[in-house]
Computed example of a mutant assay.
Amino acid sequence: MKPPVSLKVVAIVALLWNLLGCLAFFSDLRLSPDDLARLPEAQQALYAARPGWAVVATAVAVFGGVLGSIGLLLRRKWAFPVFVLSLLGILVQDFGLFVLADGATLAGPVAVAMQAIVLAVGIGLVWFSRRAIARGWLV
């Protein structure tokens, strides 16, 4: 079955979105002690409180998102479980950020809104890839 153009559009937009996530992740990892010292106190506290496993979960989320997007572009069914893994990474990251580190207070409403968008996109990609399998667009 020939998939609709929307599959390719979603896959390309998802790939770009997740590549931006990778860029943000690598930028975060490259922060020097001097860079951290220039951040507002609340953000410094957030970095200090963030558990290491939450950083690993972020890596799973962004790299899983890139791989899942590539799977969509290639029209492969394995995109779905990879997107599920990415979503789990988002959930674990958010647990570390907002439950354990109180990121909502430390980072403010903009960070909460951004993470809500990230979560919504993650859920959307899982839903879309599952739907694509059900419709026979992925093999």
Results as ranks from 00 to 15, higher is better:
Val66Trp: 13
Leu7Tyr: 01
Ile90Trp: 08
Ala48Ile: 03
Ala120Ser: 15
Met1Lys: 09
Leu125Ala: 04
Ala107Tyr: 07
Gly71Val: 05
Leu31Arg: 09
Ala49Pro: 08
Asp34Met: 02
Gly21Asn: 10
Phe98Trp: 03
Val55Leu: 10
Ala57Lys: 05
Gly122Thr: 11
Arg30Asn: 13
Val126Tyr: 12
Phe83Val: 04
Ser129Ile: 11
Leu85Lys: 01
Leu125Ile: 12
Leu36Gln: 14
Ile12Ala: 13
Ala101Gly: 00
Phe95Gln: 02
Tyr47Ser: 09
Arg135Asn: 15
Val5Asn: 11
Leu29His: 04
Arg130Trp: 08
Leu7Gln: 06
Val9Arg: 02
Ser27Arg: 04
Thr105Gly: 05
Gln115Asp: 15
Val112Glu: 07
Leu29Ala: 06
Arg75Val: 03
Gly103Ile: 00
Ser86Lys: 03
Pro40Cys: 06
Arg50His: 12
Asp102Trp: 01
Gln44Val: 01
Leu74Arg: 15
Gly96Glu: 00
Ala120Phe: 07
Pro33Glu: 09
Ala11Leu: 06
Leu119Ile: 01
Val5Ala: 11
Lys8His: 04
Pro51Arg: 10
Ala54Arg: 00
Tyr47Arg: 12
Leu85Cys: 10
Arg30Phe: 15
Cys22Asn: 14
Ala49Phe: 00
Val5Ile: 13
Phe83Asn: 09
Leu87Trp: 01
Arg75Lys: 15
Trp78His: 03
Phe63Asn: 06
Glu41Met: 03
Val62Met: 05
Ala111Arg: 01
Phe26Cys: 08
Gln115Phe: 14
Ala120Leu: 14
Phe98Arg: 05
Arg75Ile: 00
